[in-house]
C-alpha cells in the first residue's frame, strides 16, 4: 500500500496547493480560488487548451480507425507477407523514446515540405504524429479483446444468412466495444498529454497545452499551473468514470439480456 501512497501523494498535494491563497508553496495562507480566476484571465492557456482538445479529438478518431483495422489484421490473420515487420511497427512506437519519434517525424515533414511544399507544420502535423502512436495503443487493446471474442457468434450469424458487413456492424464491433471506447479514450488522453513529439513537429502556428505548461513550469512552480493541473485531473477523472460507467452498464445489460 506504500506503493500506492507513492503514486498518489504528489498528485493529492498538487490539488491541495492549488487552493492555497499564497503564491509560496511553503506557506498555507488559507483556502482560496484566486489562482483559478487568474487562470481564466490568462488567454494563452485557453487557446492552447482548445488547440490540444481539437488535435486530441481528431488524432483519437484517426487512431481508432487505423488501430482497429490493424488490431483486426493481427488478431485474425495468422500469416500474411510482412506480418513480422507490421507487428514490429505496431509495437515499437509504444516503447521507442519520444525524442526519437518526434525528431524522425519532424524530419519527414520537413522533407515532404521541401519536395511537395506541403504540409506546413502545425495542428495537422501534430495530429498525424499523435494518430500514429495512438493507433498502436488502440491496436493492442482491440487485439486483446478480439482474442477473447467468441467467433462462434460470427459464424452463427453467417450461417443464419447475415451478410459479412452486417456481422461486422451488428456482432463483432459491438462485441469489442469496450476496447473501442477505452482505445479512443487512451488515444485522446495520450495526445492531450504529449509534450515531446508535439514540440518537435509543431510550427509557429500551434501551441498545445503541454507546451504552454512546460514553458511556464521551466521557470518554476506556479500556482496557476497547480490550478490548471487540478482542472485537468478533474476532466480526466470524469472521462474515466464515464467510460467505466458506460462499460459497466453495457456489461450488466448483456448479462441480463442473456438471462431473459
Amino acid at each position: 500500500m506504500l506503493g500506492f501512497g507513492f503514486l498518489y501523494a504528489p498528485i493529492v498535494l498538487l490539488v491541495f496547493y492549488s487552493f492555497n491563497a499564497s503564491r509560496l508553496v511553503t506557506v498555507w495562507a488559507g483556502f482560496s480560488t484566486r489562482w483559478y480566476g487568474a487562470l481564466l484571465h490568462d488567454g494563452a492557456f485557453g487557446t492552447a487548451a482548445l488547440t490540444s482538445l481539437e488535435v486530441a479529438a481528431m488524432a483519437a478518431a484517426l487512431s481508432l480507425v487505423l488501430g482497429t483495422c490493424a488490431g483486426f489484421g493481427m488478431a485474425r490473420f495468422a500469416r500474411f507477407p510482412g506480418r513480422l515487420v507490421f507487428g514490429f511497427a505496431l509495437l515499437a512506437p509504444l516503447v521507442v523514446p519520444e525524442v526519437i519519434l518526434g525528431l524522425s517525424l519532424l524530419l519527414l515533414f520537413v522533407a515532404c515540405q521541401s519536395w511537395f511544399g506541403w504540409p506546413s507544420r502545425g495542428m495537422l502535423t501534430i495530429t498525424v504524429a499523435h494518430a500514429t502512436f495512438g493507433a498502436c495503443f488502440v491496436s493492442v487493446l482491440v487485439r486483446a479483446q478480439l482474442a477473447g471474442f467468441d467467433r462462434a457468434l460470427e459464424e452463427a450469424a453467417l450461417d443464419l444468412g447475415a451478410r459479412p458487413w452486417t456481422v461486422l456492424t451488428r456482432i463483432t464491433l459491438p462485441g469489442i466495444s469496450p476496447a473501442l471506447v477505452s482505445g479512443w479514450l487512451l488515444a485522446f488522453t495520450l495526445s492531450l498529454d504529449d509534450l515531446v513529439i508535439a514540440s518537435f513537429v509543431t510550427g509557429p502556428s500551434a501551441t498545445t497545452l503541454p507546451m504552454a505548461v512546460f514553458s511556464s513550469v521551466r521557470l518554476g512552480v506556479s500556482p496557476e499551473i497547480n490550478a490548471l493541473a487540478t482542472l485537468f485531473l478533474c476532466v480526466v477523472f470524469l472521462l474515466v468514470a464515464l467510460a467505466g460507467w458506460l462499460m459497466a452498464r453495457d456489461e450488466r445489460r448483456r448479462l441480463f439480456g442473456r438471462q431473459v
Binding site: 498535494l13 513550469v217 472521462l239
Partner: peptide, 21 residues
C-alpha cells in the same frame, strides 16, 4: 496512465524544492 505525465513530474518540484514540503 490517464493523468498528465508532465503534471506528475511537475508535482515533485514542489515537494523536493529547498523550501519544499
Amino acid at each position: 496512465f490517464w493523468t498528465s505525465f508532465l503534471i506528475r513530474v511537475y508535482a515533485w518540484i514542489a515537494i523536493l524544492e529547498p523550501n519544499g514540503l
